[in-house]
Amino acid sequence: MVKVILLTATWCPTCPPVKRFWELLSDDQDIEYTEVDIESPEGACLREEHQIQMVPSTLINNRLYFSGMPEKQRATSIIRALKESER
């Protein structure tokens, strides 16, 4: 299953619309979606591991794909390709 992690922060004005984007997309696609606060211990580890400089940032299958608002067509193409590679 494709795993999407959205790194967010409570003070981030861009994070709520990106959260909604992934929530809607996860309803449409069969993905495992979670949100992680960048200031939590898990978020700090992910930030360091992936050298994340801004929020929101989106990891898909543990790889950084998006910073800021994702493009829907690109996001669905990536998810589709990763699902195909799992078969």
Rank of each mutant, 00 (worst) to 15 (best):
K83S: 15
P70S: 07
Q53C: 11
S85T: 13
T8K: 13
E86Y: 07
S77A: 15
L46G: 10
T34L: 14
T10I: 08
L25S: 11
E49H: 06
F21C: 08
N62D: 14
I60A: 00
A75R: 05
P41R: 06
N61E: 05
L59T: 05
S67T: 15
S40M: 00
G43D: 05
N62K: 12
M1H: 13
E35G: 04
S40F: 01
E48S: 15
E32H: 09
N62R: 14
M1V: 12
T10K: 10
L6C: 01
E49L: 11
C45D: 10
R47C: 08
L59Q: 03
P13L: 03
S57N: 01
S26C: 04
T10L: 14
N62S: 11
L6E: 14
P41I: 02
G43W: 07
K3A: 03
Q73T: 15
L24G: 12
Q73I: 13
G43C: 12
Y65S: 02
A75G: 10
H50R: 03
L6D: 00
M54G: 09
E84C: 07
T58M: 02
L25A: 12
W22S: 00
T14L: 07
H50T: 04
I79N: 01
E48P: 06
V4E: 05
R80Q: 11
R80F: 04
S77I: 00
S85G: 02
P16W: 07
F21W: 05
C45F: 10
N61M: 06
F21V: 04
I78S: 11
S26T: 07
T14G: 09
Q53K: 15
D37S: 09
Q29M: 12
T8W: 03
D37E: 12
V2M: 09
I31V: 15
D27A: 14
W11M: 03
I52L: 01
E39C: 02
P41A: 06
L24M: 12
I38A: 14
Y33T: 06
L25N: 10
C15Y: 07
T8Y: 02
R74I: 13
Q29W: 04
P17R: 11
